[in-house]
């Protein structure tokens, strides 16, 4: 049973996942401690991707593939045909910068799918990343949340521009569908509806709410 929820023409439903997620193999490089070294604090706690991992990543020969941003950045030229065929998507982790992707490919709409992988439920960077992709960089195709994706994030993810959600394997996507409708009329403008409540309604007047 698929655990992928996707919006198609404004209706969310559970559909089969056509995409194969490509992951990095483990590195042969010894883990290096960074004690005593000055590191960019933004990266604190995040593992570095090593060149051997990128080089050794196995790319399936056929079908739609979702590859890591780090592989795309280095091996970009290998994917020209797949990109043309509409078979290439990119996934990035929340500690990566959207700008890195944009610098490598100005028009993001060449990708039919961009996925953002959230390691822990509590990591809210995914919401800003989605918002930036949609509003600043004009990305219009499928934007998917993957990783520790549970139903109580869905309303926020949807409002931040995500239109597909791969629910964590041990949870029911069917149950999760409920939470997309947690609130009918949110206050502030966001990606899904940029118009805030005070501009959507004449709040001075007594008005009837839509059912």
């Amino acid at each position: 049973m698929s655990n992928l929820i996707k919006y198609v023409s404004n209706t969310a439903s559970i559909i089969e996942d056509e995409w194969q997620k490509v992951t990095l193999p483990p590195s042969h490089e010894p883990e290096r401690k960074q004690a005593g070294k000055v590191v960019l604090f933004k990266l604190t706690g995040e593992k570095t991707v090593h060149a051997d991992q990128i080089a050794e990543t196995v790319i399936p020969a056929t079908g739609k593939i979702l590859i890591p941003l780090s592989v795309w950045l280095v091996r970009k030229d290998e994917f020209t045909d797949r990109l043309k065929a509409g078979e290439l998507g990119i996934w990035m982790e929340t500690h990566k910068l959207v700008e890195t992707l944009v610098e490598s490919q100005a028009d993001l709409n060449v990708f039919p799918l961009i996925a953002v992988h959230v390691e822990r439920f509590a990591d809210g960077r995914i919401f800003s990343i989605g918002t930036l992709l949609r509003t600043r960089y004009g990305y219009k195709n499928e934007l998917r949340a993957t990783g520790d994706v549970l139903r109580d994030q869905l309303f926020f993810l949807k409002r931040s521009g995500f239109d597909s959600f791969l629910i964590r394997a041990d949870r029911s996507a069917k149950d999760a569908l409920q939470s997309l409708k947690d609130f009918s009329e949110p206050y502030q403008g966001a990606v899904d509806n940029p118009v805030p409540l005070f501009k959507r309604y004449n709040r001075n007047a007594t008005m009837e709410l839509k059912p």
Partner: peptide, 14 residues
């Protein structure tokens, strides 16, 4: 208060 209530981008800050 209204702007910040369930602001989707800032639901899970550091």
């Amino acid at each position: 208060r209204q702007w910040s209530t369930f602001h989707p981008e800032f639901a899970l800050l550091p």
